[in-house]
């Protein structure tokens, strides 16, 4: 059992995701990885489906993990994890492995979890493997040069959704809500939560809760990408916090059919305050922002965020 971390000061000092990786300066997913590895501890196996956190972290024979790590194809993170978990169970049953069963964590991007990797994730949850599946969501295919993914927000520029005279808003589709897809269709699922790198202690505790659950768990972490979202690298945390404060991303745990909000808010900031800091939204017209605000309002209401969006006095 991993204990709850009560404060920053009590967070473990040991690192299992160490310096030297070649992620961009100010990388949100790299921080998500570091915090996850810190929370999970030494008895952990990571499965890394193709994505930024595979490509930027590894080069031939090298990787920044101090725990076992295996690459999976972008499609099959859930399947590889299922095999590893099942193998440990069998070895333990046959008394060929006497140690403590390791934590098995899939660390997939939004492509490897929400798009092409969804079927392996769903299969793993359906069969009830004791695995924590984490999606670090940087809202694009970032390592190949920022192409749109199912979690890219409405109105965002990507190289596949450029804004121009024919399509002034850039991306026309609204994003897929993967925590919801996962939550409502998998009876074996034992724990589900969303987390943000802006709330690191909360993130680490959710990782631990997911690992403590006896059965499959899913954690969706929003991790801002300075390059893809086009903001200065020192504002990664600010962007993560604003996403939650505007309701663009909602922090909650989902247990026994109920949403439990993780952050108390008196009011929400309007989405415009979040959009104006990112160049990927620079082309948006007021009518597009209005459309996005209406979408965010509806999504917040669904998970129980009832406070209204109020412009700050400044």
């Amino acid at each position: 059992m991993l204990e709850r971390i009560p404060s920053i000061r009590k967070a473990p000092d040991e690192e299992y995701y160490v310096p030297g990786h070649r992620t961009c300066a100010g990388c949100g997913p790299a921080l998500a990885y570091r915090l996850t590895a810190k929370a999970a501890g030494p008895n952990t196996i990571f499965i890394g489906p193709t994505g930024c956190m595979y490509v930027a972290n590894t080069s031939y024979g090298c990787g920044p993990w101090r725990v076992p790590w295996i690459h999976a194809q972008i499609t099959n993170g859930g399947a590889v994890a299922s095999g590893i978990e099942a193998a440990f169970k069998v070895l333990a049953r046959k008394k060929k492995y006497q140690g403590e069963i390791p934590h098995v964590i899939v660390f997939a991007g939004d492509g490897g979890a929400v798009d092409i990797g969804l079927q392996a994730l769903s299969g793993m949850l359906y069969r009830g493997h004791d695995v924590l599946f984490i999606c670090y969501d940087n809202e694009s295919y970032a390592n190949t040069g920022i192409q749109t993914s199912p979690t890219t927000p409405y109105g965002a520029w990507t190289t596949f959704t450029p804004a121009g005279p024919a399509v002034p808003e850039g991306k026309k589709l609204f994003p897929k809500d993967n925590p919801k897809v996962v939550a409502h269709g998998h009876p074996e699922l034992k724990y589900l939560a969303t987390a943000s790198i802006g709330w690191p202690v909360d993130l680490m505790n959710k990782v631990r809760k997911g690992l403590n659950a006896e059965g499959p768990a899913y954690l969706h972490i929003q991790a801002p990408c300075p390059k893809g979202w086009q903001f200065p690298p020192n504002k990664t945390i600010e962007m993560a916090k604003l996403a939650v404060q505007t309701g663009m991303f909602q922090l909650y745990e989902y247990e026994n059919g109920e949403y439990k909000l993780s952050v108390k808010m008196e009011e929400r900031k309007p989405v415009a305050e979040y959009l104006k800091l990112q160049k990927r939204f620079a082309h948006l017209q007021p009518e597009h922002i209005e459309k996005l605000q209406a979408f965010v309002d509806a999504r917040c209401a669904e998970v129980g965020i009832t406070v209204p969006a109020v412009a700050s006095a400044r």
Binding site: D13, E14, E15, V18, P19, G20, H21, R22, A25, P42, G61, C62, G63, P64, W65, R66
Partner: peptide, 17 residues
């Protein structure tokens, strides 16, 4: 306790960026 050192396999010093 394991010291918080970079893995010996990594030859990069990303500080030069």
């Amino acid at each position: 306790m394991i010291p918080n050192l970079p893995t010996p396999h990594l030859k990069f010093r990303t500080g030069s960026w």
